[in-house]
Nucleic acid binder design. Structure first.
Lengths: 216, 216
DNA sequence: AACTGATATGACCAACTGGTCATGTTTCAG
DNA sequence: CTGAAACATGACCAGTTGGTCATATCAGTT
């Protein structure tokens, strides 16, 4: 899917310089999105010359792709870890733990999460479709795997539509993280910058609703 | 919350000219978002001179605010209509009809919906917080009203957390519309440009999950 | 016809963008 | 010590942006 968008020069750089450039790039893209990101600001932040940037990467898009690859790798790793760590537990417990892991990721990597949101809602990012498809595929595989395992163990109500269930989980999960990351996006949960205890209580309430439903 | 961002001159304009300008502005902002929107393109689309635009509005932000007000009014009206039309029906039926109305709105006003998405994920839109708060408040009041009515009639499982339920509804609703409007945003439902019959089936499946839950 | 205030116009401006490139500087093998 | 390849640099470029303004045109009143 991705060919290497960085030049050899970049990989030969001293590690701390690479780090500085990647840090600056991640910050700039996460703060500004793709189009609004300014390479002039980026090089200033990284403390390198404009020309050097073009020795490391072919163009703006190349930098963006490189950053995105790193971000995606980080997400993938987290998903795998949670999946393995909860392998033998009950489905709804796994949901809770997945949500908690998501919130943790978001606090540890706020810029990666912000980058993801930017991609999601800025059409005309080059290759945006590829990027989004990759992320969604990961999420879909993750929840799909959890769902099938749960069904195999008889933890699910028979006859429910798997695509619908997958959609529901993805929607709630995604929105929960958004609400925890951004103000104004949750109606009444006040998740934004809430203490961990509050967040965990909300997670339990939500999973309870998913498990038992709303109806009397 | 909003003072009038358009100049008198604009309101004195012949209706068809106003229409042309507003059409062009809505299209440009919906397609490009706030920052990416180009006033040069806008005036070209509207068929007016650059200077004229600045006779009608004080600046770019003023145009944006004006467009947003119109869009919000349109959303508000739709919500009120659905609410009144379904007043006496069962809560879960109302949910289904709300979702269907949402999808209908989205097909009829794709640019308004796109505008909303753009606002949601572009920090640094001027007064973005005001805008988002206004939208969320409407959604929250709508679902809150439905929920309280349902509880009053004993249609809800006792003891469920209202904020959590509200969050759940808002999340599913919002994501469902997003999935219907954009490709790549739904994992497996394939709502994007799906025929109405498919969409309605998915709505029923989803509401069923919300009603009865996932657990065996 | 003459005057007047509202409206229309597009050349123009400073600021900024992504990207280039001639010219230095550093590194290191022979 | 020499030479050449790798790397660094920032002035520079064409293009675009939001916004201005002197000037022209129009509509309506006297």
């Amino acid at each position: 899917m991705f060919q290497e968008p960085a030049r050899d020069t970049f990989s030969h750089l001293p590690a701390d310089k690479q780090e500085r450039v990647l840090e600056a790039a991640l910050t700039e893209f996460a703060d500004q999105g793709y189009h609004q990101a300014s390479l002039n600001r980026l090089v200033a932040k990284a403390g390198i010359a404009k020309g050097s940037l073009y020795q490391y990467f072919p163009n703006k898009e190349g930098i963006f792709r490189y950053i995105f690859q790193i971000a995606l790798k980080s997400v993938r790793q987290t998903l795998v870890e949670v999946k393995e760590a909860t392998q033998d537990e009950n489905f709804f417990i796994r949901l809770e733990k997945s949500l908690r892991a998501g919130v943790r990721f978001l606090k540890q990597h706020p810029r990666i999460y912000s980058l993801y949101l930017k991609i999601q809602f800025d059409r005309q990012i080059p290759f945006r479709d590829e990027f989004l498809a990759a992320v969604r595929r990961h999420a879909g595989e993750y929840f799909g795997s959890l769902l099938r395992r749960a069904r195999g163990r008889g933890e699910l109500r028979p006859g429910i539509s798997e695509p619908a269930a997958l959609f529901l989980l993805d929607a709630v999960f995604d929105r929960f993280l958004q609400a925890a990351a951004l103000p104004y996006l949750d109606v009444t949960l006040d998740l934004h910058q809430a203490p961990e205890e509050t967040i965990n209580r909300r997670i339990r309430e939500l999973v309870d609703l998913l498990r038992e439903g709303l109806a009397a």
